[in-house]
Amino acid sequence: MTPGSPLAAAVVFRLGPVPVTRPVVTTWGIMAVLAIGSWAGTRRLRPEPSRLQAVLELLVTGIQSQIEEVVRRDARPLLPLLGTLFIFLLTANVCGIVPGVQAPTGRIETPAALALVVFLSVHWFGIRARGLSAYLGSFARPKPIMLPLNLLAEVTRTFSLMVRLFGNIMSGEFLIGIVLALAGLFVPIPLMALELLVGVVQAYIFSMLATVFIGAATADDS
């Protein structure tokens, strides 16, 4: 990005030649919060669950059931990837509400990385479920003439995943910043609430689309 661009990620420090930008640092913070919270929440699991344990069980089983409703098969192999995707996106999208924190998904690299993860995962699970030849042959369905379009769709849908997430989160942050600069301290509060809603919805949409893509890749043609 061009220097001074509001879309550019600020470099916090450098690890040798590698610049560590602000979204990366924020992501580390989110990872720390999620990891420590998970460790603390699952440290004393009992057969009779406490309130926190019940919330965690509800979160995990809710994500699992959502995945199962889409893929129509055992969701446990997909739970770490898709569950982490949803939890991370939810946390990353709404963390921008914290003063001084910018949502990492408001910069193009994070949505791009997540979209790339989804792109690679779709093909990985598709090949594992159906075999390489069968999976590659599925791109020529229903007619071989559809092969270019299917290949193009693979790229464009991944690109749309990335752009949708980036555009929604980035635009929300920009809008809040502009309104804050023009109107004052408390005026953007409704917009921030709306941004929270948008962040939750985008996390859900991104995760569900990833689930649908993986489900379609692993589905039996018969």
Binding site: A8, P80, A112
Partner: peptide, 19 residues
């Protein structure tokens, strides 16, 4: 707008670690 490949790579690694 220019893509920071190092940031993208770090985010990929971060996501894998988070998983």
């Amino acid at each position: 707008m220019r893509l920071e490949w190092s940031t993208l790579t770090l985010q990929l690694v971060n996501f894998a670690i988070l998983v």
